[in-house]
């Protein structure tokens, strides 16, 4: 895989250290307060074929130790991720520690991804899922750690029956996958402890 020209590589953070730290802080906030929308730090968007929030998360969280799986909609980001993150791109979803799903509607069964073990629940996959619509308020009721009573959220662009599958993921605790839902530059966290109804 030789990158003969620059076309295949998106630009990274303007300030690799500080922007990665800012994004990390945002990701932490998102997982600490599930369902709250946060904005990813600005990213020079040139060349990226995945959304800026998804790209920022990858730039801060992914490295050579974390195999990444890409769905068809995110496949074009492979070269950029290899270059900036040094991560292996795997074709077996079960071998991935991060999965970038460029099209939430095509998200298959969650059980394809690794859920960790009882002794090491951290050895599980984190899913970064791009959805069509993501805003505060609306039909979904979120409960669980990090939410005082209930948090309302609107998500469009996930497959039918997704929330039933999510409930199974929650019930598998301490095993399970965690998710970031991204929509352009906005994102929210959905850890395996968050119960979603509605």
């Amino acid at each position: 895989m030789t990158l003969a020209t620059t076309g295949a590589i998106g630009s990274a953070f303007a300030d690799p250290v500080l922007d990665a730290q800012r994004t990390f802080r945002v990701a932490l906030e998102a997982l600490a307060r599930p369902g709250r929308l946060v904005e990813s730090p600005s990213l020079n968007e040139a060349g990226w074929t995945i959304g800026p929030a998804a790209a920022s998360l990858c730039l801060s969280l992914v490295d050579h130790d974390t195999p990444v799986w890409l769905d068809a909609a995110a496949a074009d980001a492979a070269a950029a991720l290899r270059f900036h993150c040094g991560c292996p791109i795997v074709t077996d979803a079960g071998a991935a520690q991060f999965a970038v799903i460029g099209d939430g509607t095509a998200l298959g069964p969650l059980i394809r991804f690794t859920v960790g073990t009882d002794a090491y629940p951290d050895r599980s996959a984190t899913l970064i899922v791009e959805v069509g619509e993501l805003r505060e308020g609306g039909p979904l009721r979120l409960r669980g750690p990090g939410i005082e009573t209930e948090h309302r959220l609107t998500v469009e662009g996930l497959p039918d029956g997704f929330w039933r599958a999510w409930r199974e993921n929650v019930d598998r605790f301490p095993e399970g996958v965690d998710m970031f839902l991204t929509c352009g530059a906005r994102l929210c966290g959905l850890p395996r402890t968050t119960i979603v109804e509605g």
């Binding site: 990158l3 003969a4 020209t5 620059t6 076309g7 590589i9 270059f83």
Partner: peptide, 9 residues
Amino acid sequence: AVALENGIV
């Protein structure tokens, strides 16, 4: 990593 003006990396 550098890119020349002709795009070669």
